[in-house]
Design a protein around this nucleic acid. Structure first.
Lengths: 131, 131
DNA sequence: ATCGCACACGTTATAGCATAACGCAATTGA
DNA sequence: TCAATTGCGTTATGCTATAACGTGTGCGAT
């Protein structure tokens, strides 16, 4: 149950994200891939769905945008909670993971008898350079 | 610098959210307020902007929707990070706060020399009843 | 008092994000 | 071979959010 071979469209979308400085919206990706034959949003969204499923890409909910995962070796194991800092100045996104937060959240949620499926942690602000 | 008197539109939107079981999208709010004279999305969005600013309402990024704040006394003090569990089954949203998470996130972010402006924590899953 | 400013409001139009529904082609495995 | 699955392409549509314009009202400063 690793990552299967990517299809052509999936590879193109993955490539666009991987070579991008920061997050991209689906429509921005679409525009970047027009030369490769992309014509409709669904081509992007369908590829993104798979890439998200494989853990190769993250969705930034507060931005309606997508980034390539920067923890290349985590796709195999069951990965935990992913958190992001998002700079409002330069758009830079930094992905990080922390076991303490994970455990604390897990405990709080368990106290509610809530069953977690997906956790979103996004911190908007300004990075060192843009402060 | 407490919460100023709400305008008519702000009160109507606040009321709609307060009496709702769960989160509502801006357009759902609009529909609920047609009878009160609302005609355009901007009437809702402008009211929501203010209510968010006053801390009376939260935006759920992963849902593109809004909920009334359930911690009625926190609007005065400087409130910290707000987290939510969101049940995919019944739509129930529970707001909670935790100093430990707040401190841990603060430390991690400080290590990046990142300056936080707004933190989003949303946990999607299933509540006790919907498990 | 009236001018200027800030702010809320109303309206139309448009931009930006996401999915429904259809049909076709290729692959695979019973 | 047939059926099921998966990816793909296309058109159309729906949902979310904001731009840009103008109006009215309250209020403090001159």
């Amino acid at each position: 149950m690793g990552t299967p071979q990517l299809t052509k469209n999936q590879s193109l979308v993955m490539g666009a994200l991987a070579h991008s400085e920061g997050p991209m919206s689906a429509y921005t990706i679409l525009d970047k891939l027009r030369d490769e034959g992309f014509r409709a949003p669904l081509q992007v969204y369908r590829a993104l769905d798979k890439l998200l499923e494989y853990g190769l890409v993250h969705r930034l909910e507060s931005l309606n945008a997508f980034v390539a995962c920067t923890c290349p070796h985590e796709h195999e194991h069951d990965r935990g909670v992913t958190a992001f800092t998002i700079c409002e100045g330069c758009g830079q996104v930094t992905e990080f993971h922390d076991a303490a937060i994970e455990e604390r959240l897990s405990a709080l949620v368990r106290a509610q008898s809530f069953k977690t499926e997906k956790t979103t942690i996004e911190i908007r602000g300004h990075c060192k350079s843009c402060a």
